[in-house]
Simulated assay, not measured.
Amino acid sequence: MDSADDENLRGQAEIWKYMFRFVDSMALRCVVELRIPDIINSHGGPITLAQIVSSIPEASSPDISCLARIMRFLVRRNIFTAHHPSNGSEDITLYGLTHLSRWLLTCEQTLAPMLLWQTDPTLMTPMHYFSGCVKGGGVPFEKAHGRGMFAFMSENEEFGKACNDAMECTARIILKEILSDSQCGDHVFGCLGSLIDVGGGTGGALSEIVKSYPHIKGINFDLPHVVSKAPVYAGVSHVAGDMFESIPSADAWIMHDWMDEDCVKILKNCRKAVPEKSGKVIIVDVVLDLKGNGLFDDMGLILDLLMAAHSLGGKERTEKEWKKILKEGGFSCYKIIRISTFLSIIEAYPE
């Protein structure tokens, strides 16, 4: 086979893999729903399929052969390990955890809630509307569900809770990365007297910051229907409001991405309230590197497509795009701090 034929064959193989990549996602969703990583972990070591099935709640008539095929596939993906007992029995397979499946456990540092939310049919269905929106405009989520995501969440409590759980698990991972580096954490948060998390959901992320820096007065700011369900956290007060109308006064904010015009509105409201000399805006978000080949560079582009599918004008931005909206919002000076994840910290200061 010459090089051209080899390249063509490899191309075909790649397209087949991309075509069926949803199988990976749904197999992962299956084992998280069944809590199989937790079941294996609770046994303290590799276990058999029969042991796994016996621990699955409400498994009245389990199909072990179906589970065996799912586990075989995920062993191939390095999600689980598989080996035979030391006594040499070839008919018994023991399944164990890997460094990948440990991210699916029910624990502080987990991606399981985000996996469940991102593979929810509510979020998967809009992806089928991309081509129609390219031809005729519109937002895929709105085409699929007849209203925007935030309106949908306010009307669907279960979906809204799944979203909050997903955001909180991600925030814990990101914040651990920031706070475990004392130099980074002290630089970002150490000098603050108060901190508002704008659009902070139920306040889980802010509570982690206040735990590490108890001198900070934490204010979790979000829509009324969100903060009404927020739990009590020491050092954190929940305030209901609309960031497009006004933002309470504090030393800094954490803000996530909206369409450019909305970001500028939010930043201008921040500018009105931020202390003239000591205040800053803290943005924890993606800074796209279009030519990057780092561990998480693909994630920025994946998240950008999710923004296109689920929000009106929402997107991930390059540094040049961030610089533009920060300046329009009244913050001409900024600093980008790269951390070991797909997000970066952007500190913006009044001009």
Rank of each mutant, 00 (worst) to 15 (best):
M299T: 09
L179I: 07
D24G: 01
L303F: 13
I247H: 05
T110F: 03
V226R: 01
S3K: 10
V286F: 04
M124S: 06
G137V: 08
N87W: 09
L115T: 00
Y95W: 01
Y129A: 11
G44C: 12
R271I: 09
F296K: 06
I52S: 03
H215L: 10
P46D: 08
K176C: 06
R72Q: 08
L74M: 15
N293Y: 14
I216V: 06
I36F: 07
E245T: 15
P224D: 10
M259S: 11
S344W: 11
V32K: 05
M243F: 03
E155R: 12
E7W: 15
K176G: 07
N41L: 08
P248S: 07
Y349V: 15
L104T: 02
D242G: 08
K280G: 00
A240W: 03
T122Y: 02
S207F: 03
F331N: 01
A4W: 14
L104Q: 02
G201Q: 08
V239C: 01
A59Y: 05
E168K: 05
Q51D: 15
I36N: 00
E33M: 11
L288E: 02
L9I: 14
C184E: 06
Y213D: 10
A112I: 04
N164Y: 07
I302K: 09
G314Q: 00
K268H: 11
P214V: 12
F244N: 10
I79N: 04
E33L: 09
A68P: 07
T93F: 09
P350M: 09
P275I: 02
M1R: 10
L303D: 08
R29G: 05
A250L: 00
G88P: 02
G11T: 08
N87E: 13
R29H: 10
S228H: 13
H238L: 03
L303Q: 14
D186H: 08
C163Y: 14
S207L: 05
D6P: 07
E351D: 14
I247N: 00
A205P: 00
P140L: 04
T122L: 03
K277C: 06
D181F: 05
H83K: 13
S25Y: 15
Y213S: 06
H128E: 11
M127L: 14
S332T: 09
